[in-house]
Simulated assay, not measured.
Amino acid sequence: MRTMKVGNITVDSSNFTLIAGPCVIESEAQVMEVASRMKEITGLLGIPFIFKSSFDKANRTSISSYRGPGINEGIRILKKVKDELGIPVVTDIHEPYQAELAAKVVDMLQIPAFLCRQTDLLIAAAETGLPVNIKKAQFLSAKDMRNVITKVEESGNENILLCERGNTFGYNNLVVDMTSIIEMKKFGYPVVFDATHSVQKPGGNFTSTGGNREYVEHLAKAALAVGANALFMEVHKDPDNAKSDGPNMVKLDEIEVMLKKFIKIFKAVREVESNNYSL
């Protein structure tokens, strides 16, 4: 598997990497509080950490839903996280012109699942030279990601991560097939598991997306057990009052306990795979 560098973080098979932060930037104070706390927790646990939050959520269920502060203010806030806390940052982009603007600050670009087949967006992201975390669309199989990867590779960029976030069969629900992680790893790039978006219920609250954060921990454990190289988790101090994706975000006060469990699972699986385990 290729090793990826995201800022000062190395994504490989030696340890799982955590990509985490609030779904959308609600305020500078909110972002700095979550980023500071997450840096402290991951530092104590020895987990490589990349901070994520969105300057715009362009695919909200309702036209009246909060989308974010916009690219200029959002990038300014992410730059503050990077400069003051020394944390690599990632954000998603929705239109090709945003790639170059975001790349001036962030360490990795993220392609939203619904947009992973958008050729112009993939090319623009690839041409920045930054690592690109591509979320597998809810309507694609793992093997379909070969064509997505090719678009980025043939645009001159092999700094790719692939992200599993479940598949939709309609009826406001997602189903996670853990074999997708195994299949995507065959492409030779690190695979991320999005543990919080995988428990979404798209449009499940009619004018907003629902979800069930109760399942986040269980799915994350399973993903690490089958070989995920990184976890993506959206974290919020008060998810029930969040402006986006509240039902599936993890409470900031609960993340440390989860991460301690994930470390044990990751180490146990790697020990078995390295043939150092005996009854």
Rank of each mutant, 00 (worst) to 15 (best):
K5W: 01
L85E: 07
L259G: 02
F262P: 01
P96C: 11
E271W: 02
V176H: 04
P88I: 01
H94M: 10
I71K: 01
P96L: 10
V176G: 03
S27G: 14
F187H: 09
A125T: 01
T179C: 05
T61Q: 07
N276Q: 14
R146Q: 15
K79P: 10
N8C: 07
L252G: 09
S14I: 00
H236E: 09
F193I: 04
N276T: 12
E127G: 11
K136T: 08
N172K: 03
K185W: 10
K243S: 15
D107S: 14
P48R: 00
M258Q: 09
G204C: 12
T179P: 01
V90R: 00
K251W: 06
S54C: 07
D12N: 15
D194G: 05
P112D: 02
D56S: 09
D245A: 12
G46F: 09
I63M: 10
I111P: 00
T207A: 08
R2S: 14
K251D: 08
K251M: 04
P112H: 02
S14F: 00
I77W: 01
T61A: 13
V105G: 12
S36L: 06
N72G: 06
V250L: 13
G188R: 08
A126T: 02
D144K: 05
D56N: 12
V216Q: 07
D245V: 12
K143Q: 12
S180I: 02
E183S: 10
I111Q: 03
S14A: 11
E73T: 14
N147Y: 14
R37K: 14
D92Y: 09
T3W: 00
K80V: 11
E164D: 07
K57N: 07
H197L: 08
S274K: 12
L130C: 11
V269G: 01
L140E: 03
K5G: 07
L231H: 03
G7W: 00
L174F: 08
R60N: 12
I160T: 03
Y66S: 10
E183D: 14
K143G: 00
P239R: 04
E256Q: 14
I123P: 03
